[in-house]
């Protein structure tokens, strides 16, 4: 919350009346007190908030991971690390394709932008499909949602992340369709950037989950 000096500067430094002229000359096309885009700021605030959401779910999982289970296998016993590594890698690479999509659209290279958007969505879908496969395998091996503490915590955390990925895919596909219809000119590249922020955030959450939930032994 210590934003005072930072944001006070643009509004304060500009002499009265000249404010908007000065903005036009020095900053991107955002006529706001900070010169920053409302939408982007909102997305960053939202992501800051999401940290506490995922933090709570991850902490719950970590807490229950160390507790004895009363029925069924502990979740650590049935991990398929090689499989999860591959799907983690897929999600990680979708961040690359996302940033390439943004870079293409900023250059007004719409055909490539669409390719990368679609690739990103497909990589995301691959990840979700992998998660569905993983869940069914785990259930077959005796860990259902209600079997024990760890099952509940694991499925809730990773499922919640999966829902986030799915929503991201929906947004990417919407962008793809918008681009096809010519409603995504490079002047609106920021829309792609903001969806990208969300997408990368989902990716970094998985980076944390992959390490804390899968790789570090209980």
């Amino acid at each position: 919350m210590s934003v005072s000096e930072q944001t006070a500067a643009p509004a304060g430094a500009v002499p009265e009346g000249a404010a908007h002229v000065a903005h036009d000359a020095t900053t991107p096309a955002h006529h706001t007190s900070t010169g920053l885009s409302n939408e982007k700021l909102a997305m960053w605030l939202f992501l800051g908030s999401e940290c506490l959401l995922f933090g709570g779910l991850i902490s719950t999982f970590l807490l229950y991971r160390t507790r004895e289970v009363t029925a069924g296998p502990p979740v650590g016993d049935i991990y398929d690390i090689p499989f999860t590594s591959v799907s983690s890698f897929v999600l990680l690479m979708s961040s690359l394709t996302m940033v390439l999509a943004l870079s293409s659209i900023q250059r007004a290279d719409h055909r490539r932008a669409r390719t990368w958007l679609l690739t990103t969505a497909l990589l995301g879908a691959t990840f979700v499909a992998g998660q569905v496969y993983e869940f069914t395998t785990f259930v077959r091996e005796g860990l259902g949602y209600t079997t024990n503490l760890q099952g509940s915590a694991f499925y809730t955390l990773t499922g919640f992340h999966g829902v986030h990925v799915t929503l991201g895919i929906l947004m990417l596909l919407s962008l793809f369709v918008m681009s096809l219809r010519g409603r995504l000119p490079s002047g609106r590249a920021e829309t792609v950037e903001i969806v990208g922020l969300y997408w990368h955030f989902v990716d970094i959450v998985w980076i944390i989950i992959f390490t804390l939930v899968y790789l570090i032994p209980a």
Binding site: Q6, T34, G48, I58, S59
Partner: peptide, 20 residues
């Protein structure tokens, strides 16, 4: 990007890490 974005995000991140 602007420092302000970093501050917004990092305050959420650090708060989450600290509190949990």
């Amino acid at each position: 990007d602007s420092n302000l974005f970093t501050r917004m995000f990092v305050s959420g991140l650090l708060l989450a890490v600290g509190v949990y």
